[in-house]
Computed example of a mutant assay.
Amino acid sequence: MTETAVNPTVRQRLRASRWVLMVLVVVIAVATLTAVFTAPRPGGRMDPEATSSEGAHALVALLRDHGVDVVVADDIAAVERAATPDSLVMTVQTIHLVSEDVLRRLAAVPGDRLIVEPVSRTREILAPEIRRDDGGSVGGSPDCDLREATRAGDVQFGGSDTYVASGDVPVTRCYEGALVRYTDAGRTVTVVGSSDFMTNSGLLKEGNAALAMNLAGAKPRLIWYAPQQREGETTGGASIFDLIPDQVVWIVIQLGLVVLLVALAKGRRIGPLVAERLPVVVRASETVEGRGRLYRSRRASDRAADALRTATLQRTVPRLGLGADASPAAVVQTVVERTGRDPRAVWHVLYGPPPSTDTDLVNLAHALDDIERQVAQS
């Protein structure tokens, strides 16, 4: 009889455990697939492999879909190997492009140049015929005869530098100087003061995608140079935490929520709270004496007097027929009418300065007790 009574319960628990395990497996599988297929690939600004908002993976994919041979150069040596006279070398200013030697080598490679938001040193070496226009402003319309700009129309650059010619070489200015172009020794040099319109998050705004495609796809071959680390630097060995994908955090959070829900479901089966008597009962007199000794040890006669007066007023004011927000003058006047005491004495007892000695504190307590007794008997 024992086996027949126990076996059904065991089977029910096994079935419940299987359902819990199946739910956990499904949640883990869904969370893993979601993290793998929807998480952006990290990277720096204008990184051609990054799918984050500041990356440029979308522009690279569009260029390749339109037949442009995009060569991603990780270092200056790769740029020198891939550059040809009929190619376009796009140099994107990043925090890692600081070496003057690298800039000199870039200036020596063949082909046209597209320079994106350069700093002063980069501009002086790669585009010496222009200078920064400190008083310029960026307009939305091209307002020039450059074919790439007129076909794109209005563009949102965001924050952008503007440029003007620094010498006698003719310079074409578009978008009030945010985009400039000139020709030097048969080479076309184009400078753009912002890269926002080329990023993944900026391509969808107005004519941003069209202008980015027109500028970067001007030649059949594009050399994309946006250095993500300084020349000669190598990444150090990855730690165990570097090898863990960022999406694992979300998986752990989802698993924690599942465990919490299961715990709440199981916790509902716990019985009601059990009342338990306190092991020790502390009398009110002991509490009062303890607080009195504490005030005395700290010489806090002002706080003790304030506590005595507050307690007396809380008991006396309702008996006087006054509200809790009654003013001190009203309280004193009513006490005087009920007890016949001197108004100045009543004021001194109820609202006067704190006592300076223990004797004064004891006298204050007696005086408060007398007022309370007289009010109760009146």
Score class of each variant (00 low, 15 high):
residue 312 T to F: 10
residue 25 V to Y: 06
residue 206 E to C: 14
residue 128 P to E: 11
residue 53 S to W: 11
residue 226 A to H: 07
residue 305 A to S: 00
residue 230 R to V: 02
residue 288 V to Y: 12
residue 344 R to F: 09
residue 354 P to K: 02
residue 280 V to H: 14
residue 81 R to F: 14
residue 98 V to Q: 08
residue 205 K to L: 13
residue 265 A to V: 08
residue 83 A to F: 01
residue 187 R to C: 03
residue 170 P to T: 01
residue 371 I to K: 07
residue 130 I to A: 06
residue 348 H to T: 11
residue 238 A to C: 09
residue 233 E to S: 02
residue 60 V to Q: 15
residue 189 V to L: 06
residue 15 R to M: 05
residue 251 I to H: 07
residue 329 A to R: 04
residue 91 T to R: 04
residue 363 N to L: 12
residue 109 V to P: 08
residue 343 P to K: 00
residue 273 L to P: 11
residue 39 A to P: 07
residue 341 R to F: 15
residue 312 T to Y: 11
residue 221 R to A: 04
residue 108 A to K: 09
residue 138 V to A: 07
residue 287 T to H: 13
residue 53 S to T: 13
residue 91 T to E: 01
residue 274 V to N: 15
residue 308 L to Y: 13
residue 1 M to F: 04
residue 16 A to K: 12
residue 326 A to V: 06
residue 233 E to K: 02
residue 142 P to Q: 07
residue 176 E to V: 06
residue 364 L to S: 09
residue 62 L to Q: 15
residue 84 T to V: 04
residue 42 P to F: 03
residue 27 V to Q: 12
residue 287 T to Q: 15
residue 248 V to M: 11
residue 130 I to L: 04
residue 167 G to I: 01
residue 366 H to T: 13
residue 182 Y to N: 04
residue 100 E to W: 14
residue 296 R to E: 05
residue 328 P to L: 11
residue 217 G to E: 05
residue 273 L to C: 05
residue 361 L to H: 05
residue 5 A to W: 12
residue 129 E to L: 10
residue 332 V to A: 03
residue 266 K to I: 05
residue 346 V to P: 07
residue 184 D to F: 08
residue 77 A to R: 15
residue 150 T to W: 07
residue 172 T to V: 11
residue 71 V to P: 00
residue 290 G to C: 06
residue 41 R to F: 08
residue 113 R to M: 01
residue 148 E to P: 01
residue 165 A to E: 07
residue 202 G to C: 04
residue 273 L to K: 14
residue 234 T to Q: 12
residue 221 R to M: 12
residue 212 A to F: 14
residue 82 A to M: 04
residue 159 G to D: 15
residue 238 A to R: 15
residue 260 L to I: 13
residue 320 L to N: 05
residue 88 L to D: 06
residue 97 L to T: 03
residue 47 D to E: 02
residue 130 I to Y: 06
residue 363 N to S: 10
residue 8 P to L: 01
